[in-house]
C-alpha cells in the first residue's frame, strides 16, 4: 500500500436552512488520498464537492466523522491548533474572481502566506513573491497591480502561486478551471501538473467535468447527492464502469474517444436531482437509475469492491454493471414482485 496522506472517515456535513430542515451536503463519505497521487472528484453541481473539499481542509467543522492528515485527526482541531497545518494543506478555489481580494495588490495577496506564518517580510518577502509569480508564469513586474487588471487565467495563476507559496503537501483544487475558457483550461492544467512533478505535490482535483478529471487523475471518485458512488483508478473507472450513474456521466462525454466508442450509448437520466434536504431512501440514485429495483429503495448499498481481485475499485450499487452491459435499454422496475 502507498502512504496515506489524507483520510476521510464517514464524514457528514449538514447545513441548517431557514425552515427547520437540514441540507445534507455531504452524507457519509470515506476515502483516502495517497501521497503523490491526484485524486479526482466528479459530480454534478450541488452534489457536495466543494463542501467535502472544505471539510478536508477543515474550513468547515464536520457534523460527524473525522478527517486525518498524516495520521493526525484535524477535523476537531481548534482554529489555532490548525494554523501550523495550514501550511501543508492548501486550497485553490473555484472562482478566480471571488477568491482574490479586489482591493489588495497582487504582491500582497501572494505574500499573504508568508505574512500570516511570519516566514518572510520586507524585501525578502517581495523576492519570494516574485519568484512565485515567475514560477506560475506571471510577470513579476506586475507585483503592484490589482486583481482586476488580470484576466481570468492569470488570476487563477495568482491563486496557484498563493497556494504553493509555503510548499504544501496537499493541494485541494476545487474546480480550478471551471470558470475559465476551454483554451485557457489546458494552460492551467499543464501548470498544475508541472508543479506537481516539480514539488511532489498531492492533489485532490475537483470538477464537474469528467473529461478534465480523467486527464489529470490517477484515481477518480464519483459523487452523487453527498455520497461517493464509485471510486476507482482512472483506467478502470473508464474501462470497467460499475455504477450506473458513472456510466451515465461517461455517456455524456463527447465521442472523441476511441476507447469507449464501442460501448457508447447515450443515457439520458430521467427526473431531476432530488433535493438535498430530503434525499431518497435506500440508494440515493434510485429515482433516476435505469436499473433500479425495489430493494434499491430500501437498502443503502455500501461502497465496496465488486471483484475481489480489484480491491481498489469500489462501487456503491446493489446491481453493479458488468463489463459490456448495455444500460441504454434497461428500464427501472420498482414494483413489488
Amino acid at each position: 500500500m502507498t502512504d496515506v496522506l489524507l483520510k476521510v472517515d464517514d464524514v457528514r456535513k449538514e447545513f441548517p436552512t431557514h425552515s427547520k430542515e437540514v441540507v445534507q451536503a455531504v452524507a457519509g463519505v470515506s476515502l483516502e488520498v495517497h501521497k503523490g497521487e491526484t485524486l479526482g472528484l466528479v459530480g454534478e453541481t450541488g452534489c457536495g464537492k466543494s463542501t467535502l473539499a472544505r471539510c478536508m481542509a477543515h474550513l468547515y467543522d464536520v457534523t460527524s466523522g473525522s478527517v486525518w492528515f498524516e495520521g493526525q485527526e484535524i477535523s476537531k482541531l481548534s482554529r489555532k491548533a490548525m494554523r501550523p497545518l495550514r501550511r501543508d494543506v492548501q486550497v485553490i478555489f473555484q472562482d478566480p474572481y471571488g477568491s482574490l481580494n479586489p482591493r489588495r495588490r497582487v504582491g500582497s495577496i501572494i505574500g499573504d502566506p508568508f505574512a500570516i506564518h511570519n516566514i518572510a517580510s520586507g524585501n525578502d518577502r517581495k523576492k519570494k513573491v516574485q519568484e512565485l509569480m515567475e514560477l506560475v508564469g506571471l510577470n513579476p513586474e506586475h507585483y503592484n497591480r490589482f486583481p482586476a487588471e488580470f484576466s481570468g487565467g492569470q488570476r487563477q495563476r495568482i491563486g496557484v502561486a498563493r497556494a504553493l507559496a509555503l510548499r504544501p503537501k496537499l493541494v485541494i483544487c476545487d474546480e480550478p478551471v471551471s470558470a475559465l475558457d476551454v483554451s485557457i483550461q489546458a494552460q492551467i492544467i499543464n501548470l498544475l501538473s508541472d508543479l506537481q512533478r516539480e514539488f511532489d505535490l498531492t492533489y485532490v482535483f475537483i470538477s464537474h467535468d469528467l473529461s478534465v478529471v480523467r486527464h489529470v487523475s490517477d484515481r477518480i471518485a464519483v459523487m452523487y447527492l453527498g455520497k461517493i458512488v464509485e471510486l476507482a483508478p482512472t483506467s478502470e473507472l473508464f474501462g470497467q464502469t460499475r455504477h450506473p450513474y458513472t456510466r451515465a456521466l461517461l455517456s455524456a462525454l463527447p465521442v472523441a474517444d476511441p476507447d469507449t466508442a464501442d460501448s457508447r450509448e447515450q443515457i439520458i437520466l430521467g427526473g431531476d436531482i432530488p433535493a438535498a434536504t430530503n434525499p431518497p431512501t435506500g440508494c440515493r440514485f434510485h429515482t433516476r437509475c435505469p436499473k433500479a429495483r425495489l430493494d434499491c429503495t430500501a437498502e443503502e448499498p455500501p461502497l465496496e469492491p465488486v471483484l475481489n481481485d480489484q480491491p481498489q475499485h469500489r462501487t456503491a450499487c446493489l446491481y453493479p454493471l458488468t463489463v459490456g452491459e448495455d444500460l441504454s435499454t434497461a428500464v427501472p422496475d420498482l414494483k413489488a414482485s
Binding site: 474550513l59 477568491s99 500570516i116
Partner: peptide, 12 residues
C-alpha cells in the same frame, strides 16, 4: 470567497 481563502491560509 477571498475571506475563506484567507482562512485557508491560516489567517486569524
Amino acid at each position: 470567497e477571498f475571506v475563506e481563502a484567507a482562512r485557508s491560509l491560516g489567517a486569524g
